[in-house]
Nucleic acid binder design. Sequence first.
DNA 1: GTCTTGAAATCG
DNA 2: GATTTCAAGACG
Length: 662
Amino acid sequence: MTGTRRSDRRPAPGSPVARVCVDVPLAHLDRPFDYLVPAELDAEALPGVRVKVRFAGQLVDGWLLERVERSDHPRLAYLEKVVSPVPVLAPEIAQLARAVADRYAGSLADVLRLAVPPRHARVEKELGGTAPPADTAPTGADAVPVDPRGWRDYPAGPAFLRALTGGRAPRAVWSALPGEDWAARYADAVAATVAGGRGALVVVADARDLDRLDVALTGTLGPDRHVCLSAALGPARRYRAFLAARRGEAPVVIGTRAAMFAPVGRLGLVAIWDDGDDLHAEPRAPYPHAREVLLTRAQLGGAAALVGGYARTAEAQLLVETSWAREVVADRATVRARTPAIVPTGDDPQLARDPGAATARLPSLAWTTARDTLRADAPVLVQVPRRGYLPSVACADCRTPARCPHCAGPLALPSAAGTPACRWCGRVAAAYACPECGGRRLRASVTGARRTAEELGRAFPGVPVRTSGREEVLTTVPAGAGLVIATPGAEPVAEAGYGAVLLLDSWALLTRADLRAGEEALRRWLTAAALARPASAGGRVVVVADGALAPVQALLRWDAAWFAARELAERRELGFPPAVKMASVTGPAEAVADLLAGARLPDDAEVLGPVPADEGRERMLVRVPRARAAALAEALHTAAGQRTARKAADPVRLQVDPLSLF
DNA sequence: GTCTTGAAATCG
DNA sequence: GATTTCAAGACG
């Protein structure tokens, strides 16, 4: 940065010590290190800038966390360089990152890597100037239209908006009505917050939801009051958007998971839509979940929180039951008035009467519903299983799900022609015979979207067929007769709503070997069924599933809260999250054993396992009461640090609140 | 991760 | 006694 020779350097006159988080991946180095600020870097070496320091002889990247008067360390090295004078790491984000690292048994450096996008020098240059970001949150003088009408179907809704405008910190778990324009309601909440002179941050699961929210916010606040932030923008545009947020150019930030750490001035509201979507879980260490990060921000910053969806996760239910948040729901009469007519049906094509149904492998009720809806010139949405899953298998004769003879886990076909193997214990079931009918033939229970589309197209000749899935996701489809085949999460919105929604992938969803199978099935159904017209306008939903199952019951009654309460109660009984705190330790067997042997776990910790994981590694679960969560995370992080300090070769992966337990 | 350190191992 | 090797420890 300057030509000053090393021997000529002298410390800056005021607060000459910089506390630096060095960017090294070792758990035992997860603490600040002190450096001297040379006088010539005094002006640039501000908290939040990226720096280079000499660490163990080599130059490493780091974050300047704070400037202080003195250090306990006797001999300090000088800061080598300020990489960029832009203090990209806001103080409250540094504090948040520390809290997230602690919660997830991870290192601050790991979290900061997620929190601040990679620098893009050209973008920084084009913005020019080195002015530190001003605290340019909105002022109360802003004329922001607040319209409480959209929330009046929810008795607690208008008061929630008033509290946002009034600068308070209400926390809501919101169950959206079928047909609800959730993006517009989020825009209302954001506008109410901005009207009160505060900023807001909203996280959604994917690009399509982000587009909807972007449009809704542009409608209420205009185009210039919010910044969209997502990894899909690419490095340059992402960094530009991040800098805009950091400089306080707009009071509102919306985005996908990557935005959960975005700096927002005078944060008044954090919100997440559809927190059950697994895209909200960060796949990089320490695997933080957007909902938890946002709630941590609300807690640390005294901000309001909004956790909304058509469905409700057990985690959201826990917020309600612990009184951390209040539920915002419509009364039953309103729910009934908005809900489409929902009926379950068995999985048996009625071959004789409807040749078309048999061709399309549709249960006859689904087929007649589709036919009648198309005749009435209304669109039909068909939700089919997503490709790419390991197909689960069932008896080809009686359709009993094929289960492992050894552990009763679900069998799956690793490839189309392969031998079925158990998804839980990995044993190969070469000579499988169905326990119900003795049949030896198996069939995949999942049919691809494309094939379903082709078959339906043949069943209803002359009707336009559109597909929305991984390759191409449609945002909207026109009103009028048409078939829309969509995989979960890719359902387009229909103008004026769908006349019918057919939910065909229930079997694949409900037999998944997962703690959340029921919750996830219901979430996907509600999300698709919410796009149907109300029953009064002819809207119908057919779900191909046993009407006695709890998730199906919850769908029929449109009662996500009931299901979430039931689910949480069940998990309490079984000792599963979120009723308890779980962490998983994954790696080579010896490494896992070594880490757990060295960890000073809380007294009441239970160690479960091992469970085989992929590539010959194994996985142990540690369970503690929720009150011990912090102690568990700390013990695991410390134990990981002991291993890295000892140069233990095998890496061990720590996950707090792992998304899947099996 | 890399670099330093000090004690043990090896060599002439 | 001098030189090399290696594991342990520190890293500001």
